[in-house]
Amino acid sequence: MLWILAQITPGDSVVSPSGWSIWMEWDYNGDGVLDAVEQSSDSIKIHDGVSTTLLGVYGPDGTYSPTNAFPLSGGRIAVSYSDPSGNVLFKIYSGFTTVEYTSPSHLYSMVQAIGDADGDGNADVTVYDGIYDTTYLYSGAAPYGLIRAYEGKMRLITPGNVLVFAHNSGNVSFKVYSNATNLVYTSSAYPYAITSDVMPFLYDNDDYADILLGTVSSSWTADFYVFSTNFLGVSEREKETETVLPGLVKNGTLKLDEGLVGATLKVMDVSGRTVATLRVRESRVRLNLPAGVYFYTLHRGDRTLSGKMVILK
């Protein structure tokens, strides 16, 4: 085997002041390279992934502080903000500096970019109100504003096609919308007691996206229902968030059942030393730990779930 002489040289770097964190997850300026985000308790900075040039700085706005930044399309990004009372809103910026749109505020809600939900070729933004189990879909391109509200939680199947699943009287059901407004399918209601979930996935490796609905009853009986669609392909976002079972952490992100949001996660290394304790605020938990084997416990109310997990880099 021919080996090329190893040439490894230090390149660019970003070093933050004390009290800031730094992470990379998305490409904000669409150049195909992940960009770096610096975050403090009241500010966010986005650095270009190639040059480390500062692309955008987002500070407090009155009582609101920035909490996250999401790439959209057409050079736009969405920055979410929250205030100490739990109000949440987002702003859409073009060119990292010009505010194109400011959303109304929603109490105790979560902002996320969802990809092209309405089929206009542009990524959109959802605000999920967990108390009223309602998703508000906002256009990520002009004309900006609320497209409509849906009962339940929304997930992108393919561009222009979304599912919205909701829980009512111990049942879970879902609806599929094309172009955000055309209701094309309403599922039956499936009973559950402990947890349930509905998600796009690839079941049979044909050209079309599938949908998985899972339920767990009070007697710990699990049911899985697979639905086929005629929607071609699976979205980039769903590829990224493909289900990762608790116990296996890939790329630093632990995917948990959404019923565990609000739980306290405690992570111990193999010697029993606690290396992380955090409140689960969304179903994807970032764990910045070295590869290896860990034990974890999840506490919520009077329930405790414990197990072993492996972090892969």
Binding site: V184, Y203, S219, Y225, V226, N230
Partner: peptide, 17 residues
């Protein structure tokens, strides 16, 4: 739109997670 259920399985006594 063609959406239909193609598979269903029931499994007792599962360990959640």
């Amino acid at each position: 739109s063609q959406i239909s259920m193609v598979a269903h399985g029931t499994y007792p006594n599962v360990l959640l997670g």
